[in-house]
Amino acid sequence: MLKGFEGLSTPLVADACVRLGVELRAAPTGVVGVVAGARVAGRALPVRHYGSVDVFLEAYGAARDGDVLVIDNGGRTDEACIGDLAVLEARAAGVAGIVVWGLHRDTPELLEIGLPVFSYGALPLGPLRLDGREPEALLSARVGPHTVTAGDVVLADPDGVLFVPADRVEEVLAAAAGIAVTERAQAARIAAGDTLRKQTGFEEFLERRAADPSYSFRQHLRRVGGAIEE
């Protein structure tokens, strides 16, 4: 999965989702990588946290190589739910990365371990609670307004975290690769002095929009084969 994501980015994947009509699901703003430049792609391994790491250890028992642990900690900012030992155990279980809707701790150790971890940030405080466990504890994780299951793929990089249905991910990545080719060609032409406005026939767009206010720039880009937004 990471090989398929190589050379792409979450913005390209997001644009591909829009082009293909795939629902956009992203972790909330602020969920970023602990390790600078971290990237990960793999099947979601969902888990809900209730105050103890036991649920993570149980989830690891079902992990397949390359899975990405997706932790639902309700977006809490009053406790860190994962630290170095849980991350080391994740790596030992073959987990490729971790996405936390919440906080982490043990930052220096996580940097040394190097496993991609994405969270809201660090806090030294661990959980002081032990809540009742839901039946969905190992079946789904909530990340912001979205629900993530094992039927999803996680794609994460310095721009954020996306969740894509596993049965659409190949199609989405192929579309993202096509958009990337177009954008790179456009960037090369801009660097050579051919402005984006000229490339996209922007003056023509303005004329057509004046005659037809419903004519959007997105429609125009698709007609001329450009890419900058979807």
Rank of each mutant, 00 (worst) to 15 (best):
His104Phe: 07
Leu12Ser: 14
Gly178Leu: 03
Leu2Asn: 05
Arg222Ile: 00
Val143Gln: 05
Arg223Pro: 00
Val70Arg: 08
Leu24His: 08
Val95Phe: 01
Val161Ile: 09
Val55Thr: 12
Thr195Asn: 11
Phe5Gly: 11
Arg39Ser: 09
Phe5Glu: 10
Asp106Asn: 15
Arg105Gln: 06
Ala59Gly: 09
Glu203Trp: 11
Leu88Gln: 14
Leu8Lys: 01
Glu58Met: 06
Ala176Asp: 15
Glu6Thr: 15
Cys81Lys: 03
Gly61Tyr: 07
Arg218Val: 15
Val169Asp: 03
Gly144Thr: 12
Val22His: 09
Ile71Asn: 08
Asp84Phe: 04
Ser119Thr: 09
Glu171Trp: 00
Glu6Arg: 15
Gly97Gln: 10
Cys17Leu: 13
Thr147Pro: 09
Ser119Gly: 05
Thr195Cys: 11
Pro116Ala: 01
Leu221Asp: 04
Asp212Phe: 02
Phe5Asp: 09
Asp212Ile: 07
Gly75Glu: 10
Gly37Thr: 03
Arg91Glu: 12
His104Ala: 10
Leu110Asp: 02
Asp54Leu: 12
Leu57Pro: 05
Phe163Cys: 00
Ala150Lys: 13
Val68Tyr: 08
Leu155Gly: 08
Leu88Cys: 07
Thr10Ser: 14
Ala141Asp: 04
Thr195Arg: 14
Pro11Glu: 08
Thr149Gly: 07
Asn73Tyr: 13
Thr149Ala: 01
Leu24Tyr: 05
Cys17Pro: 07
Leu221Gly: 04
His220Glu: 03
Leu196Tyr: 10
Val55Ala: 14
Arg189Gly: 03
Gly42Val: 02
Ala122Gly: 09
Leu221Ala: 12
Leu57Asp: 06
Pro158Phe: 00
Val148Ala: 05
Asp54Gln: 14
His220Thr: 01
Thr10Gly: 13
